[in-house]
Deep mutational scan, measured.
Amino acid sequence: EFILQPIHNLLMGDTKEQRILNHVLQHAEPGNAQSVLEAIDTYCEQKEWAMNVGDKKGKIVDAVIQEHQPSVLLELGAYCGYSAVRMARLLSPGARLITIEINPDCAAITQRMVDFAGV
C-alpha cells in the first residue's frame, strides 16, 4: 500500500484523502454529520482502504462520549476528519473538540470535512 499509494495518487491526480473528501462532497448531505460518516464508510469499504476508526470501532467511541459527556475533548491526529466528525456530533452544546494534525494537507481536509458536516 505505502509503495503503490504515490503511484496511485499520481495517476489519479490527487491524494486518497482528497478523494475521500470529494466523495463526501458529492454523496453526503451538507450539515448532516451522520451522512458524512456513512459516505466515508462507504468509500472505504467499496473504493480504497483508509486509516480511520470506521463504524464498528466508532460505536465504541460513541458510547464512551455519551457516557462521560466531556466538556473538552483532545484528538491527536485527525487524518481526514472521520473521528472529529464522529466525536463532535455527540458533544453537548458548549463542549469543545480540539484536534491536532501535523500534516497541513490532512488538517485542511479535516477542516473542510468538519465544516461540511456542520459540527
Rank of each mutant, 00 (worst) to 15 (best):
Arg19Gly: 14
Leu10Gln: 00
Leu4Val: 11
Gly13Val: 10
His27Asp: 15
Gln26Pro: 02
Ser35Ile: 11
Ala107Val: 12
Cys106Gly: 10
Asn32Ser: 01
Ala108Val: 11
Met12Lys: 14
Ile3Val: 13
Arg112Gly: 01
Leu21Met: 04
Asp115Ala: 14
Val114Met: 12
Glu1Ala: 01
Glu1Asp: 03
His23Leu: 03
His8Leu: 08
Leu11His: 01
Glu1Gln: 04
Pro30Ala: 08
Leu97Pro: 02
Ile3Met: 09
Lys16Met: 07
Thr99Pro: 13
Thr110Asn: 12
Ile7Leu: 09
Leu11Phe: 01
Leu21Pro: 00
Leu25Val: 00
Pro30Ser: 13
Ile98Leu: 10
Val119Met: 12
Asp14Gly: 07
Ala28Gly: 10
Asn22Thr: 07
Pro30Arg: 03
Leu21Val: 06
Met113Val: 01
Glu29Ala: 03
Ala108Thr: 14
Ile20Met: 05
Ile20Asn: 03
Asp115Asn: 10
Ala107Thr: 05
Gln111Glu: 04
Val114Leu: 11
Met113Thr: 00
Asp105Tyr: 11
Thr110Ser: 10
Leu25Pro: 02
Pro6Ala: 13
Gly13Ser: 14
Asn103Thr: 15
Leu11Ile: 02
Leu25Gln: 00
Thr99Ile: 02
Ala107Ser: 04
Asp14His: 05
His8Asn: 07
Pro104Thr: 09
Arg112Leu: 07
Asn103Asp: 02
Glu29Gln: 15
Ile109Val: 07
Asp14Asn: 02
Gly118Val: 07
Ala33Gly: 04
Phe116Val: 03
His23Arg: 00
Glu29Val: 13
Glu17Gln: 07
Gly13Ala: 05
Cys106Phe: 03
Asp14Glu: 09
Glu17Ala: 10
Pro6Ser: 13
Ala108Pro: 05
Gly31Ala: 04
Gln18Leu: 04
Gln26Lys: 07
Asn9Ile: 05
Asn103His: 03
Ser35Gly: 12
Leu97Arg: 08
Phe116Cys: 13
Ala117Val: 15
Ile100Phe: 11
Phe2Tyr: 01
Asp105His: 08
Ile100Asn: 08
Ser35Thr: 15
Glu17Lys: 00
Gln18Lys: 04
Glu101Val: 13
Arg19Ser: 12
Pro104Ser: 12
Lys16Glu: 01
Ile3Phe: 02
Met12Thr: 07
His23Pro: 08
Asn9His: 00
Gln18Pro: 14
Glu29Gly: 08
Ile102Val: 04
Ile102Phe: 06
Phe116Ser: 15
Leu4Pro: 00
Asp115Gly: 09
Glu17Val: 11
Ile7Asn: 02
Thr15Ala: 13
Glu101Lys: 05
